[in-house]
Design a binder for these strands. Structure first.
Lengths: 209, 209
DNA sequence: ACCTGAACACCGTTCAAGT
DNA sequence: ACCTGAACACCGTTCAAGT
């Protein structure tokens, strides 16, 4: 993709994310992004590597919003700072979550966030495979939490009404699925960030042992 | 969807999963499944609620393969048994992972697995919100691990050549991204199941504290 | 060098007609 | 009741022609 001119990649990123935020993932197509920019569909191919590249654009835009304060204290506090920063960025764009779950990118923002998280985790004394495991543990929890919150405790994939799914869980046999019903109820009344931090603390306790 | 006859839902599930396993996710369409079954596309609508329902079919088929032994000892061993069972089922169908990450279903297999995991976790003394958090922690780790393994440590989304992505990570500045390079190297030489069990043990340690 | 319309080979789904 | 072909309104992408 040698130096294009009519737009910048940054412009495409911004418009693409706005479309996903406002109209959902299905509304983002080569053609819809093009017409939002006032051009023909084929122009997009000068900035992005096909449909796949279009989706990476959205992932990049979300990760670029991750912010955290540099912490100088305990390693566990540094991990928490980065993890909460990532989680907030992801959570701010619920429609983009399926993309973030499945596509990884190597853009500068994603790399910087990953390296920061790894640096904090490395201060627990880990390296090599153990560091890799710790990294997957934390990132899996971040994306898993965001996704769970979006989908409801055991909601069906895409229903825009999470309460309907909760209702469906509640209508199950309480003899066969007592715990499922209990957590479906618990999920409706809770502060997401407190939940997230509580889960993270459990991981950190495990990592410190 | 009142009692259809030409096929069973079970048949559709089996054929759909086989197509995804052999030809990838993109190869599964209403039309392709129909012609694999020797009918017209519209027949599928008698068994499944549109494209969304088609994808749920695959999720169900994967979860239906989860197996574990009932454990009578420590709660942490029971959690491990169910978690490893889930992880193995998911890992056996790498092309279906994006679906499992994003669509939740309420079919009997998924419900039974979730309830079993919750039952084991409840024996740690948790209930309500704390049980919900523990559940998300474990399931997020299961799906996150399967996905990470598929995608490589920080690979680009869909490249069928994970080594290429690892190479790309390695070509980064070792001053700017030292830890990223280190874990990319560690990821190439490791036993996935040992890694998974190690990560799970860290979670269980945190949950026991 | 970058841009872009036309055309192609697909999709999912509605509808109306079959049995 | 269940089945299904035709038709519609979309997709992503190739190609060839513009500047």
């Amino acid at each position: 993709m040698p130096a294009p001119r009519k737009f910048t990649r940054e412009q495409l990123r911004t418009v693409a994310l706005a479309m996903v935020d406002e109209q959902g993932l299905a509304a983002l197509t080569m053609r819809s992004l093009a017409s939002a920019l006032g051009t023909g569909a084929m122009t997009i191919y000068n900035y992005v590597d096909g449909r796949e590249g279009l989706e990476q654009l959205v992932t990049e835009a979300v990760m670029a919003e991750a912010r955290w304060d540099d912490v100088t204290g305990e390693w566990s506090e540094a991990v928490t700072a980065v993890a909460v920063g990532m989680w907030r960025a992801v959570r701010a764009h619920p429609h983009a979550i399926p993309l973030i779950l499945t596509r990884r990118s190597l853009d500068p923002s994603t790399l910087a966030t990953a390296e920061a998280l790894l640096g904090a985790l490395a201060h627990s004394g880990r390296s090599g495979t153990d560091l890799l495991i710790a990294f997957r543990l934390v990132t899996g929890f971040i994306t898993g939490s965001a996704q769970s919150e979006l989908a409801g405790p055991l909601a069906e994939g895409h229903g825009d009404d999470p309460d309907a799914a909760t209702g469906r869980v509640r209508s199950l046999s309480s003899e066969r699925f007592p715990h499922l019903i209990a957590i479906a109820r618990a999920a409706t009344a809770s502060d997401p960030e407190i939940e997230f931090r509580t889960g993270l603390r459990i991981i950190l306790t495990g990592l410190a042992a």
